[in-house]
Design a protein around this nucleic acid. Structure first.
Ligand SMILES: Nc1ncnc2c1ncn2[C@@H]1O[C@H](COP(=O)(O)OP(=O)(O)OP(=O)(O)O)[C@@H](O)[C@H]1O
Length: 778
DNA sequence: CGCGCCGGCCTTTTT
DNA sequence: GGCCGGCGCG
């Protein structure tokens, strides 16, 4: 039997469960994903279930790929025929076959965030609404929330007055998308649910096809995804979900952990299995993480134990600045490589925000250590790359008006806003696409001669691009675009450093296209030999061709940085805590362990959000197998302004006996005695005593570095507390004649002043300019 | 009518 | 540190 020697009795019990609903609710590192993998293999090898009847949904494409490979290892070739996908890639697969039934072309395009923003902006313009009142990104979030809740514009508008106006934008936005033959990310799920709800015969087909359904990371599913699973599993009820409510870190995008908590309510006959042994982390790390998460209220308490050694304690380092924080991390990596013979791929640096990668990157670069940054400004989001992708999309579907309006004047060809507006007006008047409107532009009177000429030239150029579709391999097509549109020329004429970087990126894009051609060729060959391609995204119906453009665009839309990362490469990994979910590393550095950074300032006063931050901390800590470092900086640039913050409350929640401070008294914040967080208590008696050294400027163990602001000693609040108006620091109790008493949460120096952020009791958080505000220390 | 420059504004996490 | 809007010039 599969798994007998590799699973503990509980895990085995779960893996051997065949028919009926199954819930595995268990803590980090307890082998949930492993059980799912073994279960799939067992269903195939031990129970003779046809692999193509199995659907496994994972959180990332990378996880899907890994799971499929593991299943192949365990169950052999048959493993290839299991469908392992993310919700999004699974839905794309379904919709590529069925979209026409719900009024979309099967070749619908997938909007990314910038396309979405463009569409919202256009909707606002057409409705004559102001961007200042309706902030496009906020509107987009609300539309996304609505879609995750499966609410149509009409349903959404039915709520209240404010929603009514947003509902109008949502309706317009949706109209633009459908007219364009496009879906956004949320549509992929919502439209699939709609398809299954409106077309019972289609649903039945997929229910028959996928009789065994498994969902990993179920705590982070949203309502739409929940409904999708519910519909698919409704007939055979062979639904297995695994997850951990303590690792729910995506509620901000609609994920709802009650999906997992109420699974037993949905399926009263569900078999429920709890896994309690952690196989990943050393005992000290596990105890530290458990100590932190224990501070959340209303969670399902879980036991988690390990038979591993205690290992090293969780190591805390208090840097003075962001720069020193980065130097410490890199020095420590270098030290461990030598002292313990570790490889670079064993290290991960985790942070709350993508912007935090910069400082670490700079030092890694300086020391010549190979590294990879996952996430952040992605290659495919760079302007020049997006421009080329828009050309490709336009070539695939000239009636994609969002793509057209992006490329109409790129590179600059004298077709400005006014002319674009005119083209758009024609398309609205005649109810045609912008491409049709552009073609007719010449025959429309009243247009200036100049713009007629320019639009005419564009149309001819675009026509020639379209006509070479199908005869050029993707890489050649991109080269042609860059030549014919004058994109290359315009960049080569500009000899700035930036243009040089753009050219590099475009060359990179061409080589990515060449790799794609090679993959298409291989997949075609495999298909001829009757072998499933094994790719997460392929539908297995059409013969892949290096000249195809759509599959490339789909890859770009659905694959994230993480999915493209080759973890076998020997380099240090830098990523956000969110991206690290589900991964594991022997050595983990968590940087930016400060209030206002982690937990992030905007979640400090919102208990729900604060708990999500804490779960994120739990996720981060439990990624570490052997060594975990928590690092903070007493001073850093935050959103461009210098700030000094208190030590993260999460550090103080780590049980003291498993925490070791590497530089006791190393940075001022550590020695802040008796200060409390807005919500309450913290005191570290063993450190309070060191406060004695804090008053004097000379107390620093190291001389100030360049990155340090002049005069920081006073204005930043590092100097002694003499009760004066200068030197407020985070944590200070202050009073204000109007707002009453409060606690300083942040001190930031701006151009000519110091801005103090204070949480006033019962008054909320205020930002005050120190030079004006009559603040006094309490 | 188009384009480039400057100054002010906001700044989370991602399939 | 990046994006958008306003303004002035060609
Ligand atoms: N029975 C076992 N014997 C040996 N190793 C195991 C066993 N079960 C799990 N592991 C190992 O423990 C680690 C964590 O497993 P897995 O990723 O499946 O846990 P998880 O519960 O999905 O974790 P998380 O929720 O934190 O992402 C993996 O390295 C896995 O190989």
């Amino acid at each position: 039997m599969i798994g007998e020697d590799c699973l503990n009795p509980k895990q085995l019990e779960a893996a051997r469960h065949v028919d009926g609903p199954l819930l595995i609710l268990a803590g980090a590192g307890s082998g949930k994903t492993r059980v799912l993998t073994y279960r799939i293999a067992g269903l195939i090898a031990d129970h003779g279930i046809p692999p193509f009847e199995i659907l496994a949904v994972t959180f990332t494409n990378k996880a899907a790929e890994e799971m499929r490979l593991r299943v192949e290892d365990l169950a052999g070739q048959a493993g290839r025929y299991v469908t392992v996908a993310t919700f999004h890639s699974f839905c794309v697969r379904v919709l590529r076959n069925e979209a026409e039934l719900i009024g979309y072309p099967r070749s619908f395009t997938i909007f990314d965030e910038s396309d979405q923003l463009a569409a919202v902006n256009r909707a606002l313009r057409e409705l004559n609404l102001s961007k200042d009142v309706y902030k496009p990104s906020a509107v987009l979030n609300m539309i996304s929330d609505a879609k995750n809740e499966l609410l149509t514009p009409a349903e959404f508008a039915a709520k209240d007055a404010w929603q009514k106006s947003i509902g109008g934008i949502y309706a317009k936005y949706q109209q633009l998308l459908t007219d364009n033959g496009s879906m956004d990310f949320d549509d992929l799920i919502m439209q699939t649910v709609r398809l299954f709800s409106e077309r019972p015969e289609v649903l039945a087909k997929y229910q028959e096809r996928y009789r065994y359904i498994m969902v990993d990371e179920y705590q982070d599913t949203n309502h739409a995804q929940y409904m999708l699973v519910k519909l698919l599993a409704d007939k055979y009820r062979n639904i297995a979900v695994v997850g951990d409510d303590d690792q729910s870190i995506y509620t901000w995008r609609g994920a709802d952990p009650t999906n997992i908590l109420e699974f037993e309510g949905d399926y009263p006959d569900a078999k429920v299995i709890k896994l309690e042994q952690n196989y990943r982390s050393s005992a000290n790390i596990l105890e530290a993480a458990s100590g932190v998460i224990a501070n959340n209220r209303g969670r399902k308490k879980k036991t988690l134990w390990t038979d591993k050694d205690k290992g090293s304690k969780v190591l805390l380092y208090n840097a003075e600045s962001e720069r020193e924080e980065a130097s410490f991390v890199v020095k420590e990596i270098e030290r461990l490589v030598v002292a313990e013979g570790r490889k670079l791929s064993q290290f991960a640096v985790l942070y709350r925000m993508n912007s935090q990668s910069r400082s670490v990157e700079e030092v890694l670069l300086k020391d010549g250590i190979p590294y990879r940054v996952i996430g952040g400004l992605k290659f495919y989001e760079r302007r020049e790359v997006k421009d080329v992708l828009a050309y490709l999309r336009f070539i695939v579907n000239p009636h994609d008006s969002v793509a057209l309006s992006r490329i109409l004047n790129v590179p600059k060809r004298g077709i400005g806003d006014t002319t674009e507006e005119k083209v758009m007006a024609i398309s609205q008047e005649r109810g045609c696409s912008m491409w049709d409107a552009a073609r007719q532009f010449g025959s429309t009177e009243k247009n200036a001669e100049r713009s007629q000429r320019l639009v005419g030239a564009f149309v001819r150029m675009a026509d020639s691009l379209i006509s070479s579709k199908g005869s050029l391999k993707l890489g050649d097509m991109i080269e042609k675009i860059l030549e014919d549109t004058g994109y290359y020329k315009s960049l080569k004429e500009d000899d700035s450093l930036e243009a040089e970087a753009r050219l590099d990126n475009l060359r990179e894009l061409v080589s990515v296209a060449r790799e794609y051609e090679a993959r298409q060729n291989m997949a075609a060959k495999a298909m001829d030999e009757g072998i499933e391609s094994g790719s997460v995204l392929r539908d297995g119906n059409t013969r892949p061709d290096p000249k195809d453009i759509d599959p490339f665009l789909e890859e770009v839309a659905l694959l994230t940085d993480l999915d493209r990362t080759n973890f076998a490469e020997d380099s240090v990994c830098l990523m956000t805590l969110h991206s690290a979910k589900g991964l594991e590393f022997p050595v983990v550095f968590m940087v930016g362990m400060e209030e206002n950074v982690f937990p992030l300032s905007r979640s400090l006063y919102e208990p729900k959000q604060l708990e999500e931050e804490r779960r994120l901390c739990y996720v981060g800590m439990t990624r570490a197998k052997e060594k975990l470092y928590l690092i903070s900086a007493a001073y850093r640039l935050l959103y461009g302004t210098p700030s000094s913050n208190l030590m993260s409350r999460f550090v103080n929640e780590v049980p003291k006996d498993v925490l070791e401070c590497l530089n006791p008294g190393g940075a001022p914040m550590w020695r802040t005695p008796g200060r409390d967080y807005a919500s309450g208590r913290w005191s570290r008696p063993e450190n309070a005593g060191q406060g004695a050294r804090q008053g004097g400027e000379g107390g620093y163990s190291e001389p100030r570095r360049q990155g340090y602001p002049k005069g920081a000693g006073n204005s930043q609040g590092f100097a002694g507390s003499n009760g004066g108006r200068e030197g407020f620091r985070a944590g200070d109790k202050v009073s204000h004649p109007v707002f009453g008493t409060g606690t300083v949460v942040n001190v930031a120096k701006t151009a000519g002043d110091t801005v103090v952020t204070v949480a006033f009791e019962g008054q909320g958080v205020k930002r005050l300019a120190l030079s004006f505000a009559p603040l006094s220390r309490k």
